[in-house]
Write a protein that binds this DNA or RNA. Structure first.
Lengths: 208, 208
DNA sequence: GTCCGAAGTTATCGTAAACTAAGTTGGGAT
DNA sequence: ATCCCAACTTAGTTTACGATAACTTCGGAC
């Protein structure tokens, strides 16, 4: 890979950094690793970002945007609120190969709670995810696809908590977790039931 | 604090380390910080632990044991399976002040996925928590306190996922999360409903 | 062709962190 | 009283990481 115009190099650096940070977390990832992954030398990183932390924050912000955009696209061609909802629950970005790195970065970022800039970037993203899901649930409730026993806000936090926890367990690769049980039931089916307030249709999940 | 016999010093080191690791995570916490928190110098740490990582792994193992013991104690005087269950759901160790540090250590540890020794220690603990909760749910199902729509295994993973995610969000201190909504409903009430399969009694929670 | 700015490299600095070798102190047993 | 050993400290060594200063190369404009 030869020379790249600044904007492209910047994007490429973020692309490569995602993989490294997802694997090693912020603190363990070194600027040398980041540079090597992008096929450049370390000073190039500092041409485009003030610091390692600046790069990380930029990555979090970009990843957040991309995640929401990807969700919008996924839901765009769904006809009913119920269908939109089923996709939302079934497509945990943490488990799909493309979204995996992105979400691992977030998981890693959560443990950098002590760093104000990073914590804020993460909190911003989570808030916007909450807003997104809450609005979705609200529409679904109005359409009758979701039980209105609970407010959309609380339900959205439930979904986010579970998605986050699920992702963390997946990252750890714990045996028995994330697989269907002897009755063919998956965690997301349980989740779906919370939402509809009655026995739900099995959740549509992407094949592995 | 003067001299201590080896066994006590070791315990004290672990005690102090919990606070530091909870705050800064494994990678960011320095041996200097750990020593200072315990009121000793760094070589003392190496008298009792082979390495920083060894100390961290020991801490994870001890914390895991303590958490289960604390749960056992909490549930001991509960009369019915339903009562035991309500306490299990209501007492997320992540939110009680005593259990908080302990569980923050775990959260932090999860992002050290790349380190085999650490990952294994965490996975071990999670597995034993799963066993504990699953058995509890199984008994509760037999007593009719929990819907048998889902297997205890899947329900236990649901609880763990949600507890973990909830803890992560709490750690981030995200606004609006973890509070009751306008109807006085808390996340754990939603969770309780998953378990019983019908409108549940409000969950008993420790006052904040 | 040559000039210039942007893109990239080499070589290195300062620092902080994990870990240790060697010496010092305190307190219990005889 | 003194001897001894475990507990503890001082004063480093080493290594690796984040960051930068100074230099080189590429490619388009005129």
């Amino acid at each position: 890979m030869g020379r790249l115009p600044a904007a492209e190099r910047r994007e490429q650096l973020l692309d490569c950094a995602a993989g490294i940070f997802a694997r090693y977390g912020y603190a363990r990832a070194t600027t040398a690793q980041l540079a090597k992954a992008a096929g450049v030398t370390e000073p190039i990183i500092y041409r485009h970002f003030k610091s390692k932390r600046d790069l990380f924050v930029a990555l979090i912000a970009r990843t957040g945007r991309q995640t929401l955009e990807s969700w919008e696209r996924d839901l765009a061609d769904a006809k009913t609120p119920a269908e939109r909802l089923a996709r939302l629950v079934g497509d945990n970005p943490m488990v799909s190969p493309e979204g995996r790195d992105a979400y691992l970065v977030f998981l890693q970022a959560i443990s950098e709670v002590e760093d104000d800039a990073i914590r804020e970037a993460v909190a911003d993203h989570i808030s916007s995810v909450h807003t997104f899901i809450r609005d979705e649930l609200e529409r679904a409730q109005q359409g009758g696809a979701v039980s209105d026993r609970y407010t959309p806000g609380v339900l959205a936090w439930s979904l986010i908590s579970m998605g986050l926890g699920y992702g963390a367990l997946s990252a750890l690769g714990i045996e028995g977790h994330g697989q269907k049980d002897e009755r063919g039931i998956h965690l997301s089916d349980v989740l779906a039931r919370v939402l509809v307030g009655r026995q739900a249709e099995p959740v549509r999940r992407k094949p592995e």
